[in-house]
Design a binder for these strands. Structure first.
Lengths: 195, 195, 195, 195
DNA sequence: TATGAATGAGTTTTCATTCAT
DNA sequence: TATGAATGAAAACTCATTCAT
């Protein structure tokens, strides 16, 4: 008898429908809009049924968000450690972006600004624009490359800020040098290419 | 008559007390915990007083968060454009980290994970750990540098993901190469130094 | 299966309980006392339940008041237009008063002064008393008829005032004549009867 | 020294400014919009000053509304009782409408629908329209007279309802006859004129 | 197991009134 | 006496969670 299987499959399908609905809502309207009523409605189920699949709203958020991070953090580990670390890095990073490519909506839910309060979103944009301006100003970077370079640098600096916040002992000068370690070579390459 | 001045000063002081309380709450308990009641209680004021200083809760969030981004985005612009773009970058980035240095708590409120839902915060940590592992694995990066390199790379990739989400036309391979443009030189330098 | 019927009936019963509670509160304490808390308490329900039945407090007010007016305004229209207009008028007005007779409490909520601010209520009483005095003064109207004649005349004049307010072009003399068109014949009849 | 007089006059002037502001607000936005802040703002005074002139908001409402009713209820009493009761009635009613003529805004504040909740206002209009229809239907009343006749009859019936509510012993038939006592002669007059 | 009405604690916001300046 | 910031009780409304059917 595969009845238990069938009902189990049904169960998983319904659970997944809730997760998908949650992701869509987060991506489109932000976490604030993620109410149990909204999710069940979007999944075309009764409110009460929700608690058959999840213990709490937080439980759903966990399922909807957490395993995205898990998939991102542990993409298929290579069978054996590649001899060349850069190959490893290449593959690892490629996997991340491929994940983004195939799961754009899901990623927008988790990484997109939608889940942030408006002010945070606007703030990130503001800083990104500022960096874009600086990058453009010197004309070293060709216009078509400015956007992604600005995006990557914005992220880089955000990462640096996050680190600096938690390490009161590190100096600003030190962090600046560390950050520039990543930026300078890219700029130099462009500068040389431009000559 | 300095009466208007005095009351104006008092007004600003009380307003600031609310902003400070808001930042503290965000940093410690996340935006979700930012209720008008909580803020006024933390600032030792009556609930009603809140609306003497802000039109709405969102208005406070704006004041508490937005100007941090503004300060970050527009640090003293140099009188004249420095001849060397790298000097400019150095100064700009230094200013950012100096800001972090002097305003650590404030920055924790805005850039720390506190304003995110629990799951997002844990997710970011997870990815950071994964990257740390990869970085450690090859023994190229000395143990003491691993944490900040991992932090910066995590940010870099997050920035890349944000860009990729909004640009469906860009391929994963392309984004990977772009990201590696920033990472490789740093690794190479370590590799050479290690020889 | 009458399950949907049963739950639907239950739903309507509970909804009605809220409407009844609202009418009682308006009749006894005025519209100002009509709070969601008060209504649900009177109906012995939870606050939250209120919003299962009504979209907003105004929505309840609409339900509690509006359909009374509708019933009043459109009592069973006669199948065919009675040949005699006065018969028609008689029936129409009779229906109104019969409605009052059977729905006294409901009418008190809507037409009684309860829904007015205290001052307005007292004001209406004052004018009514004044008119009563004038009516009594000449001894034309027998004492037992004074109260209802005064009531009707008070209403008549209130109606005239309402009209005059919205028609700035009409003169006071004109309105007076129009009003007297209704009053004089009644008085004359009494005068003749009294001779 | 008329200093006390001067200050007293100033006091009365400021008090009146508040009363006027209150009336304007009631007429334009309804009693619900009558807040102490709104009144003092409209009168260009400080909130706190309000309580120098009135003990409470209700006290203001009393002053703003109550004396309108008083003026309406006791217009200049005739030195001696006119011999003809109808003359008396004419004068009394004329005075009412003259009062409306010169104090239209004030009257709108007190008698206009502005102070009623939306539903009550709509309800009164609905009934008035219904009566208008009936009056029109028979073609006895010339079109140009229909509006004011309908307005007066609506008021008349409202007055009757108010009476009936408070007198449970009176029958619907009785009230109908009483109401028609006022209406029929007017209609008959039109009918005869039309022949 | 599915349903959706019921619950009530918690949230934002308003406003009459007080009181220090 | 005039001012207007401060107060806090009370209002409308939301939503995670429970539970009878």
């Amino acid at each position: 008898m595969d009845a238990p299987n069938r009902s189990e499959r049904r169960r998983l399908r319904r659970r997944q429908r809730l997760i998908d609905a949650a992701r869509q809502i987060i991506a489109q309207e932000g976490v604030a809009a993620l109410t149990v009523t909204a999710v069940t409605e979007a999944a075309d189920m009764a409110v009460g049924s929700f608690y058959t699949y999840f213990d709490s709203k937080d439980d759903l958020l966990e399922a909807a968000v957490w395993d995205v991070f898990q998939q991102l953090a542990s993409p298929e580990p290579p069978a054996s450690l590649p001899a060349n670390p850069l190959d490893h890095a290449y593959n690892a990073i490629l996997q991340v972006y491929e994940f983004v490519e195939t799961q754009r909506d899901l990623m927008r839910a988790v990484f997109g600004a939608g889940h942030l309060a408006d002010q945070f979103e606007r703030g990130h944009k503001l800083i990104s624009q500022r960096i874009t301006l600086v990058v453009e100003q010197y004309g070293i970077i060709p216009a078509e490359d400015v956007p992604w370079i600005a995006a990557l640098q914005t992220g880089l600096i955000a990462g640096g800020i996050g680190y600096a916040i938690e390490h009161p002992d590190v100096t600003a000068a030190e962090m600046t040098e560390r950050t520039l370690k990543f930026i300078v070579p890219v700029w130099l390459e462009y500068a040389q290419a431009g000559e």
